[in-house]
Each structure stands twice: as structure tokens, then as C-alpha cells.
């Protein structure tokens, strides 16, 4: 009997999730390891969906670009909850399409020690206009050498430049060691 209730609950949860996704126009939800293959799969899936929906080319390209940077940020920088699986970079990824805009929402675990500097970069990026972002980008690209992980630093500036929107973000402290970092990138559909 209890097993039946359990399975009923699960079905109910699945249905609620489906309904929530529909109401919020979420086309993609993923939680798990983010690898290059996952990145390629999601970007091509989203590309196909946009092509079907006859989204303008400019918007399609921007969504593709921003998704790649968001996903590669996770695959290069996400931290883990435990120390045993250092190499596994996990996160959540959501893509929603509203009347006005696409939203790409990513979330991943980050060490508390890294939070202040990330926050500072985000605030700095959000304080700049288009020209300011362009000069910061140029400065960073010249000064930075490719880190061992390949990249970093430029990703967030690039997202801000390409979307033309402020980066929206939140940090939720999970425990003394780590926080959960959520980043929402918005691409306007009517430009």
C-alpha cells in the first residue's frame, strides 16, 4: 500500500513539474554533470527548437552563444559538494522562452572562498555600459593568458555584451564550505 502511495506521489510530482514548466514556458531542464558532449547536445537541441519556431537569426545566434558560455562556465568552474569527486562538474540548466525574452538559467556549487571575487566581477560588469564592456573585454583578453582549464574571466563579460542585459544572479549559502550560484541571462526577442 505504502509503495502505491509512494508511486502515486511521484506521478503527481512529475505532473506538477510538467505543469510548472509549461506555465513558466521552460523548454529545457537538466541537472547533472555538464560536459562538452552535454553542451553540444543542448545547444543543438535548442537551435533545432528555435529554427522550428522561426525565431529570428539574430536571436538564435545570441541564445546559442550565451548557452555555450554558461555551460562551459559550469564545466570549467563548478565546485563539488564533497571532496571525493573533484573532477565532476555538475549543475542545473534551464531555458525558458517567454513572449519578450529567452532566459538561460544556470546553477552550480561554488566554494565560499570564491564568492566575494565572483560577486565583485559581476557587480563591475553590471555597472558598465556597452562601450565600457567592450574596453573591459579588450583589456582582459590582452592581459589574461589561457588558464589551465582554458578560458575564464571573459565568459561573463561576453554574456553581458551579447545579451545587452544586466546579469542577474544569486548566491545561496549551503554550508560553511559552499554556496549555490545561480545566474540568469536574458536575451530579448524583440530587438
Amino acid at each position: 500500500m505504502s509503495r502505491e502511495i509512494e508511486s502515486h506521489r511521484f506521478l503527481d510530482f512529475a505532473y506538477q513539474l510538467y505543469k510548472t514548466m509549461k506555465t513558466n514556458e521552460i523548454n529545457l531542464v537538466y541537472e547533472g554533470e555538464v560536459t562538452q558532449d552535454i553542451t553540444k547536445t543542448f545547444t543543438s537541441l535548442t537551435e533545432r527548437n528555435m529554427a522550428k519556431s522561426e525565431e529570428s537569426n539574430q536571436v538564435q545566434r545570441k541564445v546559442f552563444n550565451v548557452m555555450v558560455e554558461c555551460l562551459q562556465n559550469i564545466s570549467k568552474h563548478a565546485d563539488t559538494l564533497s571532496d571525493d569527486d573533484e573532477e565532476e562538474r555538475r549543475g542545473i540548466v534551464m531555458v525558458s522562452r517567454g513572449d519578450e525574452s529567452y532566459k538561460i538559467i544556470t546553477g552550480n556549487v561554488i566554494r565560499n572562498t570564491k564568492v566575494p571575487s565572483l560577486k565583485e566581477s559581476l557587480e563591475h560588469i553590471n555597472s558598465l555600459d556597452k562601450a565600457g564592456l567592450s574596453s573591459l573585454y579588450k583589456q582582459q583578453i590582452v592581459e589574461s593568458t589561457i588558464s589551465e582549464k582554458g578560458g575564464a574571466g571573459l565568459g561573463l563579460i561576453d554574456i553581458a555584451k551579447k545579451t545587452g542585459s544586466k546579469l542577474s544572479y544569486q548566491f545561496k549559502e549551503l554550508n560553511e564550505e559552499v554556496s549555490f550560484f545561480i545566474l540568469t541571462s536574458t536575451i530579448n526577442r524583440n530587438r
Binding site: N65, V142, G151
Partner: peptide, 12 residues
Amino acid sequence: EYFNTASSKVIL
């Protein structure tokens, strides 16, 4: 058609 930010450094 597209390059990511990691590639942008190599292009430089």
C-alpha cells in the same frame, strides 16, 4: 560563425 571566449584568446 561562432567562437567561444576561450577561442577568442587564441585568435588574439
